[in-house]
Amino acid sequence: MHGALRHKGRRKDRLALTAAFKCIFLLCLASLRAGRRREGLKQREAAALAFSIQITDLTKQYRKGPPALNKVNLNIQSGMFGLLGPNGAGKTTLMRILATLLQPLSGEVYVGGVNLADNPGAVRAILGYLPQDFNTYRRLTVRQVLDYVALLKGLDAAAARRQKVELVLAQVHLKEKRHTQVAHLSGGMRQRLGIGQALLGDPQLLIVDEPTAGLDPEERIRFRNLLVEISKGKVVLLSTHIVGDVESCCSRLAVLNQGNVCFTGSPAELAAKARGQVWEIAAAEEQHTTLPASARVIATRRIGDTVHRRILSPMRPLPAALPVEPTLEEGYLQVVKAGATP
């Protein structure tokens, strides 16, 4: 009697156990299937992308402080697009959103007609990204890092991958350092490695955040030319503080200030923003003149004994001042100043 009861209890235990294990099995199966379905979808959509970026009313708010991006509207066509702006303007924030690393508070981003929020995988599949401070696995060699990134970008065939890595090594001038550990690279070399990994996989969308920071003049020029060369038919988004970089290679640019876009257009249009507001004064060195409060000295050049000063001012600062054709930098300063005052 006792035995029979106990036996029954055991059987009940066993039944419940089997049921529980079945549940676990089904749980695992369901989650696996869901993952596979999503991945397939992303790849199909990536192929359908055309290359322009449409940003509407994009707002990003960090936990503290004012919005880092405030209703940003931008239309970026293929070619090189420059992003200018003072420190803290929101350039990195915008680029991190485009690189699918940050989620905006509101607004929409379409990359070639695909909504970024709905399908970040499609954007990652065509993206090359260089963050503002690039670093990577310290213990690996330059080649190993590039090889791993190439693998993750889908370069499966070993021979093709090796070829591509060698090409990129040549492009960023790191061929001799290919067997050096990342930890032993100089800052500029590491930055070049960062550029190199962004170039791998022929990305249709290349986002580079202050890529020329830390590069020597020779490397900077080499990099600019490289960008111009590869930007055909692709979107290259470049942020920088060095106006010269933008001037020499970008067909279009935007100026961000405090999360607002205060200018979009070509470099010539930006320069034109300061037309009629840039003046030059040539004076002997010892001559000292006081300028009105609204005027700002932008550049000082010494030719022989005379000092030439370029001045940004809404009106003629001194009777001797002559109006001159503004440079891009002056246009930028004018736009940022105008954007900050209202």
């Binding site: 993952g35 999503r38 991945e39 992303k42 991190r96 690189a99 699918t100 690393l101 995988g121 990652r124 599949a125 993206l127 990204y129 260089l130 963050p131 401070d133 690039f134 670093n135 990577t136 696995y137 310290r138 990134v149 993750l152 970008k153 889908g154 960062g194 990994q197 962004a198």
Partner: peptide
């Protein structure tokens, strides 16, 4: 690993999905 090495921004902007990375 990527966070420690300062590589996470690049790494997470690469094609692998979360499922692939963490799996």
């Amino acid at each position: 690993r990527e966070e420690r090495e300062g590589f996470s921004d690049v790494f997470y902007a690469l094609p692998p999905t979360n499922a692939a990375i963490y799996g």
